[in-house]
Design a protein around this nucleic acid. Structure first.
Lengths: 154, 154
DNA sequence: AGAATAAAAGACTTTTTTATCTTTTTTTTA
DNA sequence: TAAAAAAAAGATAAAAAAGTCTTTTATTCT
């Protein structure tokens, strides 16, 4: 589905959204440890996201990454498009470059429904909304929460 | 989404379903030329599909690949699972190994809807049904048809 | 039986993705 | 103002995916 880069990125963004603030930034090291993701790889990817201002960053002591209020009301589609390229949500399921609604492949019609579902997942809710669920009771045992707990309760 | 291998495989299967029969098998060379796909790469992939009997093949003169009646009533999900592995339709959208309905990631609930749409595309219709659409009027200009025409009208 | 045809199988190469390492720049604070 | 902290940037390495080439095996037809 998505590349590893993209999955790491989504997890990191959600982690930052739920754990960091402007006055409590998190370094790559901490995020990488919490999510069990290769640290230098994560660093590069967070820099990509920071460059286009999907997340925020600051250098120096007490520096690190976080999401500003503006960042929090954006959605996950942008994260995906930044890391996996802009075509993930529009390219033909059979990989045909000339496929379009005017010139459909035999799966085109049905693929539209699937694509809308995916867009729905990534676009309908803000990053803040998704991140808030991490702490909710029904998610208490969820993988992301577990990672967070591992980090907070040594 | 799917790997290139898988896209090539889906296109080849649909092409074979619409163009080949038991008494008119098609060689790798012909399929590769029609679909504009690297020939030796396609060969390996068709062999994978033939090994698990998703498609049929015969060696020797007048040999080649085709779909038997039994092959034609199967669906495209099997093609995908053969070429991209069995987890494409079930793995977590964030790549979390421990994610499940009992232990959901914050996107799990919504991801179920998207996954069902995808399964619907790949599973609800038989290969024959999908392949038949290639020749239908509303698909006359579709990419796969164009490729077929290119091959049949030199 | 022998020649030709085409898939099957396996080894190999290239490209892309994933991952790592090193140096530089910026910022903070003592 | 110097030291430390952390992101930014860039070069390098390993692994996986994509693509190619060569040899073997099975089948058909003359």
């Amino acid at each position: 589905m998505f590349s590893k880069t993209c999955k790491y990125g989504l997890r990191a963004v959600l982690y930052l959204a739920s754990q960091a603030q402007e006055d409590h930034k998190l370094g790559v090291k901490q995020v990488a440890a919490a999510l069990e993701v290769p640290q230098p790889f994560l660093a590069k990817l967070l820099q990509q996201l920071a460059r286009v201002q999907i997340i925020s960053s600051a250098k120096g002591p007490n520096g690190g990454f976080y999401l500003s209020d503006k960042n929090l009301v954006a959605n996950l589609r942008q994260v995906v498009e930044c890391l996996d390229g802009p075509d993930v949500f529009s390219s033909c399921i059979l990989g045909l470059p000339s496929c379009s609604s005017a010139n459909p492949c035999p799966l085109h019609q049905q693929a539209v429904a699937y694509r809308n579902s995916l867009l729905d997942v990534m676009e309908r809710q803000t990053i803040r909304e998704v991140a808030q669920r991490i702490g909710a009771p029904e998610y208490a045992q969820s993988p992301l929460s577990l990672l967070i707990k591992k980090d907070n309760q040594p």
